[in-house]
Write a protein that binds this DNA or RNA. Structure first.
Lengths: 338, 338
DNA sequence: TTGTAGGCGTTATCAA
DNA sequence: TTGATAACGCCTACAA
């Protein structure tokens, strides 16, 4: 009885089947290069031994891991869940596996996790947004790691990307809000430092605001991390101002959910007393009360396209490309006209 | 100018520093076995070359990966998010990395992912619950992979585990509900097949119901996957019955959130017309309206303990142990007496 | 304290 | 169609 369990290797299979390790390897990877008879023999041995290829050894010898790494800013809320899910499904279809980690919105943590994923032999990387230290892009280029930026929409094709125009979308929503008669808007934005999506969304509101002839001085803005509690706290602060806003535009649905929840707590009616808007159209948006007016993002489509384009890049079937998706505004009860 | 980028290896560092690869390796892994002078020399070379150890090679040579795999049933909702987060943090503290995948509540998918993680060289595994094919446990034992079951509470120590008593907790909650005067209870349970947590929670309600002298025939039960929409749908169905329930006890907070959301849609007041309870006390529970009465689970503590115990197991500093946590009932507005 | 050299489990090149 | 055999990049006795 062995003290340490024996784990079957290629050698064991080769012995059991009476062939060489090379042949076993072929049976596993390029069946067509092997006679049906030996294939059967080998597969039997594989089966009976319960052999499973050692991933690390394989990756090292083949110089590719069939693994793709993704780093998202957070797993706490559902912002990236659906998109990543679709990304993973599309990868699996093509025989790739996904490794995910979360950077907690910290650029240096992200940089570290990039190194980690590269060290693990990732064939390619999915990153969120485009704003990061140039050194990171240099590093990736030096190592020759195909990288695709999602949730990002770039003017040029310096990086491969798939995403949508956060700024235009938010501007469009703000136009709608103003069109409904609102003149006292307050904004609860995510932290824009190091977060291009948040920055662009905020710019979008400002664009609209100014295009309608108003001054930025009259646009209260609070920046706070994307957490439901923070949305609630920011809302309280905004409502203490001398001129109360008639609408709160939030940088995403999570903040908006916090606003709606808190409003009820303190006896403010949405949308009669104050309207609220979000961004992303996550699952939650339909289920808060009142349901949230927000910007619908085609998360699943984005994930699927990201997978296709990244794999094409890895297998050198395509050049870097920028893919821009359309978003739409979903009107729900949380926003009403004056 | 090299067509394919050159990635620095141990050899490169050794050459640059004028020492052997063994010495470089020591500098990276066992600094104390190296003179301060060479250490400095080597680290300089590491730095200037931008050397990063190849993970696969390291894992293969050292026969350990310092990686732990976790398989959770779903990432869609936040049930496991906080626990896993704490688990990861504790792992990192001890120099271990975490690899996560999701089984979508499908036992065969879980089995496949277990093999995948083992093939990747995971030093240990975290699984959710205890109910799975014996063959899986056999396989794990044969390969000698330390495994810890979380969200599970076992009577014996056949498997290492950390968790709480789902059945007792739910029974306790049901006792409270009945104590408040409710006699028409309906249950929306998760799918109990293959999900021991769901099964035990359901049993807990039944225990209480019968202990109070009622018949199971008078306890309407709907099983449905843990999704907010499903909670809503089940609720509609339950309210169409001849005898309308005065309280809906849900298998978890996600289902309960669906109930609360749908109730408002169709003009049923919670808790005046019908009370609602959940389980887990996820973030959402506080923010639905009315706030959800539920069972609070110490997710972070569970994650932390899971990490400690699993690492102890891996490093053979401890034997398999069963760790049972206390849970508590959180009374909020969604439940009121008759 | 340092270096030498064998081995970890695959894949891939070349002959046979 | 198969089989030797040399990588792949690192760790780790063992020797110096």
């Amino acid at each position: 009885m062995p003290v340490s369990p024996h784990i079957p290797t290629l050698d064991d299979v080769a012995n059991a089947a009476g062939v060489s390790t090379a042949t076993v390897s072929r049976c596993l990877n390029e069946k067509q290069k092997v006679s049906p008879k030996t294939l059967e023999k080998v597969m039997e041995a594989v089966e009976s031994l319960g052999y499973i290829p050692n991933f690390n050894a394989r990756a090292m010898a083949a110089r590719q891991s069939h693994t793709i790494g993704a780093i998202i800013p957070t797993m706490e809320n559902a912002i990236f869940a659906r998109g990543l899910q679709a990304f993973q499904e599309a990868l699996l279809d093509q025989g790739y596996n996904l490794l995910v980690s979360s950077s907690a919105y910290q650029p240096d943590l992200e940089a570290q996790q990039i190194r980690e994923l590269v060290a693990r032999g990732a064939d390619g990387l999915l990153l969120i947004g485009y704003e990061r230290d140039e050194a990171v892009y240099d590093y990736l280029a030096r190592r020759g790691i195909p990288t695709l930026l999602a949730w990002a929409s770039l003017p040029d094709t310096r990086h491969a990307s798939v995403g949508f125009d956060n700024r235009a979308a938010m501007r469009c929503l703000a136009d709608r809000v103003i069109g409904l008669g609102h003149r006292k808007i307050a904004v609860i934005s995510g932290i824009i430092d190091g977060n291009d999506r948040a920055a662009e969304r905020l710019s979008g509101v400002k664009d609209s605001w100014q295009a309608h002839g108003f001054h930025l001085d009259d646009l209260p803005i609070i920046q706070t991390p994307y957490e439901i509690e923070n949305g609630a706290a920011a809302f309280v602060e905004l409502m203490q101002a001398d001129v109360k806003p008639t609408v709160i535009m939030c940088g995403n649905d999570v903040l908006a959910a916090g606003v709606i929840s808190k409003a009820r707590d303190i006896g403010i009616n949405v949308p009669d007393d104050v309207s609220v808007t979000g961004f992303d159209d996550i699952e939650l948006a339909k289920h808060v009360f009142p349901a949230l007016t927000t910007v619908h993002v085609p998360h699943r489509e984005m994930g699927r396209i990201a997978a296709e384009n990244l794999i094409a890049l890895i297998e050198k079937r395509a050049e870097k490309a920028t893919h821009r998706l359309d978003v739409s505004i979903v009107m729900r009860a949380s926003l009403k006209g004056l």
